[in-house]
Nucleic acid binder design. Structure first.
Lengths: 223, 223
DNA sequence: TCTTTCTTCAAACGATTGTTTAAATAATCT
DNA sequence: AGATTATTTAAACAATCGTTTGAAGAAAGA
C-alpha cells in the first residue's frame, strides 16, 4: 500500500524526535548529568528500553542532540566566511569580518527561536561546562575542522604577523567566545529583568568587537 | 603495622591533610565526578566513613580543597590592586594594571609550584567545567565580592564611560579569563611538546593584553 | 588507672544509574 | 491473509554512589 505520508502512526521516527526534544530540554536545564534515560523516557512518554533502541547509548543520544543544534551554526559560519570572501573579492578580510563570521551565527540562531524554550545558548553553554571527557569529544567533533578553516583565513589576513602570535591569539579569541557563552548566565545578575533575546544579540555584538580588538592587540608585525 | 613514624601519630589532622591532597589529585584529573568518597579513602589509605567524619559530605570536602587553592590567588589579586593604587598615587589606574592585578596572580601561583603535580591551573580549569550547580556555588563563594572590588576600580579609571558598557565589558573580560583558563588544554595541541610552566606564563601575559584591549575597545566615552 | 574524647573501621543502607533480556505489540511487505 | 520486520514494553541486571550505623581502637585528661 501507499500514502505513507498521510498515515501518522507512531512510527519510531516520531518517537525518536520526541526523545531528542526531551533530551534537549533536560540537557539545557541540568546538563548531561541531568539527562537520565529514565527521565527522558518518562517525559517523552515512552519506555526506557526504547531509548536504547533508538540511540544505543546515552552518550550517543546526547551527542546526536548536540550535533543537531551545532551543525546549523557551523554551516552558517562557513557560509558567512564565504560570503565575506566574495564581498571583499580576494582581498584579505579585516579580522573583524572573520570573527563576525565565527561568532555572529550563534546570535542568529538565538533570534530564530521565537518560542525561546530551550535556548540554543543554554545548550552551548552547558556543552562547555561539562566534565572534560565529554567536552573533549564535543570539541573534536564539532570544532576541529572548523578551526582550521578560520585559522587559515586569519593567516591570509595577517601575512606579516608572527605565526606563533596568530595561534595564541586565535586560541584566546575562541576561548573567550566559549567562555562568554558558557558564562552567559552571569549576565542575568547584571541585567536584572532585562535578560532577553535582545540582550543576547547585544552580547554577541559586543563579543565580536571585544575579541577582534583583543586579537589585533596581541599579534605583532614581523620585523 | 610497625613504627608508623618516629615523630607523630596519625592524629586526624594529618589524615585530613592527606585526604585533601588526594581530593586535589582526583579533582585535577577527573573533575568532581571523578572524586568519589571510596576513591579518596582508598588513595589516602584510610576508611570510607572517616572521610565523612572529617568533612561531613563530599561537596564540603571538594569545596574546602578548592578554597585552599583559590584563596591565595584572590589574596594576591587584592594585594596587587592595592600595590598598583599606591604606585599610581590615587591617580586612576590604567585599565591594563587592573586586569594585570586580576589575572597575573594565577600565573604566579603556577610558577610557585616547582613540583608541578596537580597544577593549580588544572584545578581552576576543572572548576569551570563542572555541572552548573556546582559551578554556581564556586563562583558566588570565590568570586562574588572580588568582582565588586575590581568593578569599582574600573569605574574610577573610566569615569566618563557608559556604565552599561563597563559592566558588559567587564563581564566579557572575566568570561574570557575563565574561558581561557578552562580551555587551556587546547593549547597543548598548539604547542606540541612545548607545554610547560613557561607556556602558562606566556599565556597569562598574552591574556592580559588581549583582555585589556578588548575591554577598552568596548567602552565608549559618554558624550 | 579510669574516663572521656577523638578517630578509624567494617558493614550495611538506600537510592540511582546505564544497560540488557525476552516477550508483546504494531506496522509493513509478499 | 500470513510472514517479516520495526517498535514498544515490563522486568531484571549489575554496578556505583553518598551516607549512616555502631562498635572497636587510640590518644589525652582526670
Amino acid at each position: 500500500m501507499v500514502s505513507p505520508s498521510i498515515t501518522t502512526r507512531a512510527n519510531g521516527q516520531e518517537t525518536k524526535a520526541r526523545l531528542l526534544r526531551t533530551t534537549e530540554t533536560l540537557f539545557a536545564s541540568k546538563g548531561v548529568a541531568g539527562v537520565t534515560m529514565r527521565g527522558v523516557a518518562e517525559k517523552a512518554q515512552t519506555n526506557l528500553a526504547s531509548v536504547h533502541y533508538h540511540f544505543g547509548s546515552k552518550e550517543a543520544m546526547v551527542l546526536e542532540m548536540i550535533q543537531s543544534k551545532i551543525e546549523p551554526i557551523n554551516s552558517k559560519r562557513r557560509k558567512r566566511l564565504d560570503e565575506a570572501k566574495v564581498k571583499f573579492a580576494d582581498k584579505p578580510l579585516p579580522n573583524i569580518e572573520i570573527f563576525r563570521a565565527l561568532i555572529h551565527p550563534v546570535g542568529e540562531e538565538v533570534e530564530k527561536q521565537i518560542t525561546n524554550q530551550n535556548g540554543i545558548i543554554e545548550i552551548i553553554s552547558r556543552s562547555f561546562t561539562e566534565p572534560a571527557e565529554f567536552l573533549d569529544k564535543i570539541q573534536k567533533r564539532f570544532f576541529g575542522e572548523l578551526s582550521q578553516v578560520f585559522m587559515t583565513e586569519l593567516k591570509k589576513s595577517n601575512p606579516n604577523a608572527n605565526e606563533e602570535d596568530l595561534y595564541w591569539n586565535y586560541h584566546l579569541a575562541v576561548s573567550s567566545m566559549l567562555g562568554t557563552l558558557a558564562q552567559h548566565r552571569r549576565m542575568i545578575d547584571f541585567s536584572v529583568g532585562k535578560y532577553n533575546q535582545n540582550a543576547v544579540s547585544a552580547m554577541i555584538d559586543r563579543l565580536i568587537i571585544f575579541v577582534s580588538n583583543g586579537f589585533e592587540a596581541g599579534i605583532q608585525i614581523k620585523q
